[in-house]
Design a protein around this nucleic acid. Structure first.
Lengths: 128, 128
DNA sequence: TGTAATAGATTACATCTGTAATCCATGTCC
DNA sequence: GGACATGGATTACAGATGTAATCTATTACA
């Protein structure tokens, strides 16, 4: 599997929708974005075009519509992005990165407890 | 303290050097970069100019040279970048991602304690 | 059946980035 | 003193990005 292309911020929004649920037509994507983005449908079309050109998306035809679907997995893209961002900012220091993220994240009580539990276990099982 | 400006990949290299040690002249920065980057000194100058314009750097004058120094802390920039990275890549699923990472990470005792402390604080300050 | 809405394709255009080159003043070496 | 190196300032230029508008074919409503 070849490495995924670079996906920009705006493009990421579109991919997110398709990773969650595909294939979808352009209009369906537009509707799903409508909630939290004020993009004109034109804008979304442009993004779709770019993503197809980048080979991040693929489509088939249904009548006169296109049905878009991802050609790259979310996982692969996350790994890529993580690679560049994380290595830039944190180098290979995973610990400080997690500290930073946990500090910033908006966590639910459940998640906090879950994390605390994991940490307790880790600390009992004798980490260095 | 105003929010830090956006710092690009290439710019980040320059900032990293100045965060570690400042003030420095353009030439000193060029030398320090010489190890792992094949940038022409022109390129570095351009980056310095942009960073000054963005108000990420400041300079004073020594003779006919400039002495550059950061105007923004590394910490503030890391916070910014992390924020946009997290929300872009993980959207509102930051929690599960952290759980998974923490589970897999090889953490030192210190880091574990640090994380536990952060979580305690978060849980006290009434997360939802 | 004509006309407007929609679909996808192409084009636009300003800003940011990476990566310099050019310009002008000064400092330096012979 | 003259030519060259160096410093900072300005300009360049292509590719990526955000954000559309326009063009053309088709579809669907009045």
């Amino acid at each position: 599997m070849s490495k995924p292309p670079t996906i920009s911020d705006a493009e990421w929004e579109v991919m997110t929708i398709l990773w969650a649920n595909s294939p979808l037509t352009a209009m369906e994507i537009v509707s799903q974005l409508a909630g939290h983005k004020q993009w004109s449908p034109r804008t979304v079309k442009s993004l779709l075009n770019r993503l197809v050109k980048k080979r991040a998306l693929d489509y088939s035809t249904r009548g006169n519509r296109y049905l878009y679907r991802p050609r790259v997995t979310r996982d692969a893209c996350v790994r890529m992005e993580s690679g560049s961002f994380l290595s830039r900012v944190f180098g290979d220091a995973v610990g400080p990165m997690l500290v930073q993220f946990v500090q910033q994240a908006d966590l639910s009580r459940d998640e906090i407890e879950q994390l605390e539990k994991i940490l307790r276990e880790k600390s009992n099982s004798g980490e260095k």
